[in-house]
């Protein structure tokens, strides 16, 4: 609903795109044999999503200190401490993010690469917190509403995805035949 308020009806095709793109990406390597390309594209998508997510986390962490609206809430008006609650939520959800990166990327790549990904997310957080003011106008834009709808569609795909019973499972022999990164995207 919040994305709809920002971007209007454009959220519907974005939602459908987010829902269908992972399913299409899963089917591609079995139809065309282009597993490497799909894995590379998935890597770019994952990196973009992780980076954006980290930047938005950084913005959320900077809100209680920088944003006058959240500041007013902190000092006794309206919902008490909503800015800090958001910061606490961001910090708590970082724990599973760290586990996810380590358990999903570490088995498929080198230790150095997994550490680089962690560092990349950490850097994104610092960037988001440091550049909160210029970035904040972006987060309330139409494009961000469309992006959120796309991400929501991808999350619905994750929720509905069953490696053993899903529509994509008939196209390959076992869940183990999935490229690791496609599985990583699904889990995220």
């Amino acid at each position: 609903p919040h994305a709809f308020l920002m971007a209007g009806w454009w959220v519907l095709p974005a939602l459908l795109g987010g829902l269908l793109l992972p399913a299409v990406a899963e089917g591609l390597p079995h139809r065309r044999g282009g597993e490497r390309q799909v894995e590379r594209l998935t890597l770019v998508l994952v990196a973009t999503a992780l980076g954006l997510h980290a930047v938005m986390d950084g913005i959320a962490l900077a809100l209680p200190a920088n944003h006058s609206h959240a500041d007013a809430a902190l000092h006794g008006h309206g919902s008490h401490g909503s800015g800090l609650s958001l910061a606490l939520a961001v910090i708590l959800h970082r724990i599973p993010v760290g586990f996810a990166i380590w358990w999903l990327i570490r088995p498929h790549f080198s230790r150095a690469f997994a550490i680089t990904v962690i560092g990349y997310v950490a850097l994104g957080t610092v960037m988001g917190a440091a550049l909160t003011e210029p970035l904040l106008s972006l987060t309330s834009s139409e494009g961000m509403g469309i992006f959120q709808a796309f991400a929501a569609g991808a999350l619905v795909h994750v929720l509905l995805h069953r490696p053993d019973f899903g529509p994509a499972s008939g196209q390959h022999d076992s869940p183990a035949s999935q490229p690791g990164l496609t599985a990583a995207v699904d889990t995220r």
Binding site: A100, I118, V126, A129
Partner: peptide, 17 residues
């Protein structure tokens, strides 16, 4: 903000550690 960012990065490292 710096403290919150620091704690969030520390939380990120719990899994790997």
């Amino acid at each position: 903000t710096a403290a919150l960012v620091f704690i969030s990065i520390a939380a990120l490292l719990i899994g790997p550690l």
